[in-house]
Computed example of a mutant assay.
Amino acid sequence: MIPARYQASRFPAKLMQDLCGKPVIVRTYEAAVNTGLFDMVYVVTDSETIAKAIGEVGGKVIMSRNQHESGSDRIAEAILDMEVDIVINVQGDEPFIDKESLAKTIAVFKADDEKQIDLASLMTPISDWEEISNPNTVKVVVDNQNFALYFSRSPIPYPRDEKVTSTYYKHKGVYAFRKRALLDFQQLPMRPLEAKEKIEAIRFLEYGKKIKMVETHVTGIEIDTPEDLEHARRAWK
């Protein structure tokens, strides 16, 4: 499932921006399909413009009936009556998503015989302090089994003692959910931490859900700003 909202506060209409001949959302949809990992790939949107672009390449679209605060809420509505076990959420601004990282995320559930994991997501190590301190880069800290402890737009952990070595992780916008966890998410009201940080993964933590983080070294490019788009165009070429 690829949630796709036309409006975006930081970069309006970014999903319909041209990425070397096709809109960003079409590039993302095709990247997900081309992994060959999924029974079905849908774009879930409230935008007729986005729906038309996906339809023109033969893609499948689900139109949202309600207004939604987050991509997870949008997907929860879409899968309500579907017979599915695991749902993968790929952000619409991730045209460089790769098969290896997605396969690692899916493997979390294949190994979870006792079904204790509610969702899985991706993280990648980062070392550039400009990126670490950038509020557009969501960071995550984990425990010794790589379960998420917290997500933030601030640098976490804070480098109070610079002699202590610590790895910083960037949270990548890919989630794998058990259906029940996603439906629960839609029913749970947003709490202050999520509202303050504007990071939907925090809602799961605030309500005691277990998020398994999967490390990947494939960084890709998330398109949050016009500068990101120019970077993506250069990389695509």
Rank of each mutant, 00 (worst) to 15 (best):
D46F: 09
F185N: 01
Q145C: 05
I126N: 06
S127G: 12
S152K: 01
V90K: 09
N146M: 10
D113G: 09
R10I: 08
K212D: 00
Q186G: 12
F109H: 00
E131V: 12
Y158S: 03
F109D: 01
A13S: 04
V174K: 01
Q17A: 12
P155S: 14
T45S: 13
P3W: 04
I54E: 08
I50M: 05
S133Y: 06
S9I: 02
S64H: 07
G59H: 08
V61W: 03
I156L: 03
I156A: 05
Y150L: 08
R74V: 11
A103G: 06
E83D: 14
M123K: 08
D112V: 05
D184C: 13
V57F: 13
E230Y: 11
M1P: 05
C20S: 15
G220I: 02
R234M: 12
L149C: 08
I50G: 14
D85N: 00
W236E: 13
G208M: 07
L80D: 11
D39F: 03
T219M: 10
L80F: 10
E215Q: 15
R5W: 14
I126S: 03
V26A: 10
P95I: 03
L183F: 00
P155Y: 02
G59M: 11
P125T: 07
P226H: 07
K196Q: 15
D18L: 11
L19S: 06
P189G: 11
I126V: 12
A111T: 02
R178T: 01
Y29V: 02
H217E: 09
Y29W: 06
V140M: 05
I88V: 12
G55C: 01
F11E: 13
Y169E: 00
V141C: 12
S47D: 10
T219A: 07
R203G: 08
Q145A: 09
K179A: 11
F109L: 04
L37E: 03
I88R: 03
K170M: 10
S127F: 10
E131A: 10
K115N: 08
A51T: 05
A120W: 00
I97R: 02
D93N: 10
T219H: 06
Q186R: 14
Y175W: 13
V24R: 07
K110V: 07
T124Q: 15
K115R: 11
V61A: 04
E56I: 06
I50D: 08
T105Y: 04
E227I: 02
